[in-house]
């Protein structure tokens, strides 16, 4: 009985973590799917979102949940600007160029954060998030439940925007046939910038969600870049909603490893899954990825 209870608790932990992974990866998936840019500074956007929430709460006592839209707006503005003025120049060039430029951006962001805020680990102390929901024998920490629910909700919201709005149609059309999109009047430079802004904005919100339960520090980004990359490939490249499946898979696999093997293996698990999926199911878990 305790074995079963342990297993269920482990799965719950994995799902709660997986929802946040999905949120932290969806921006990477969107940007890569539309403009073909593999954003090596992805995790740094998550880090900046986490710091936005930390400082707004610490300095101005803004409720952490109310910082989410601020985090989105700040990161949207940063992402839009980066794409419009810098990354725009890498479009239509080899993938390596955008990878190098975004890697440079990540170095700048990490070092600026270290300079401004030091390498200290900082933890939010939010009284009303410190309790847990108890369901029978199982423990669901409130902060993680909220982070997971908001994260999945945000992925759903982004999918809805892509599927059902004029902006979403313009983004999809640009991804499918750039020249034809221009021939119906789409300004590609703006659309790429808005897309990058959206991707950065949701990544910032994901960072804010992480800050609800985990420490914030300037070097936290790299892990998120790697996890997000794994999640996107697991879910299927170019299939935005696939990050939910990829995130849950990674979250559950890591939780199982932590409970039954060794707590320090989370990165290894990500790469092992990445290997398996590329070897056996290259279109992702749901088989809906686009392969080029």
């Amino acid at each position: 009985m305790t074995f079963l209870a342990d297993l269920v608790q482990t799965l719950i932990n994995g799902i709660l973590q997986g929802g946040v992974y999905a949120a932290a990866a969806v921006g990477l998936s969107l940007i890569f799917g539309v403009s073909g840019i593999l954003n090596a500074a992805h995790g740094e956007l998550v880090m900046l979102g986490a710091f936005a929430t930390y400082w707004l709460f610490t300095l101005y006592h803004v409720d952490p949940l109310l910082t989410l839209p601020v985090s989105f707006a700040l990161l949207f503005a940063l992402g839009f600007t980066l794409q419009y003025f810098v990354l725009h120049r890498t479009l239509g060039r080899p993938l390596l160029l955008s990878l190098l430029v975004t890697f440079g951006i990540s170095m700048i962001l990490v070092n600026a954060a270290l300079r401004l805020w030091s390498a200290d680990y900082r933890m939010l102390r939010i009284p009303y998030f410190e309790h847990s929901l108890l369901v029978g024998p199982f423990i669901l920490p409130l902060s993680r439940v909220v982070a997971c629910a908001v994260g999945i909700g945000m992925v759903a919201g982004l999918s809805w925007l892509l599927a059902s709005t004029r902006l979403g149609r313009m983004i999809r059309a640009t991804a499918q046939d750039l020249e034809m999109a221009r021939l119906v009047g789409v300004n590609p430079r703006s659309i790429y910038a808005v897309t990058f802004g959206l991707g950065a904005g949701v990544s910032g919100v994901a960072g804010s969600l992480v800050a609800l339960y985990a420490p914030v520090e300037p070097n936290m980004g790299l892990t998120f870049t790697l996890f997000a990359f794994a999640v996107v490939v697991l879910g299927g490249l170019g299939y935005t909603a696939g990050v939910v499946w990829g995130g849950l898979t990674l979250g559950i696999a890591q939780a199982l490893t932590e409970t039954y093997l060794e707590a320090g293996l989370s990165l290894l698990v990500a790469f092992f899954l990445l290997y398996l999926i590329l070897r056996f199911m290259p279109a992702g878990i749901m088989g809906k990825g686009r392969l080029e």
């Binding site: 059309a173 499918q176 046939d177 119906v184 789409v186």
Partner: peptide, 16 residues
């Protein structure tokens, strides 16, 4: 646009 519905393709025409 191959991965869009007929209706969405038509709506893309009415951007201006």
């Amino acid at each position: 646009f191959p991965e869009m519905t007929v209706l969405d393709n038509l709506r893309m025409g009415a951007l201006a």
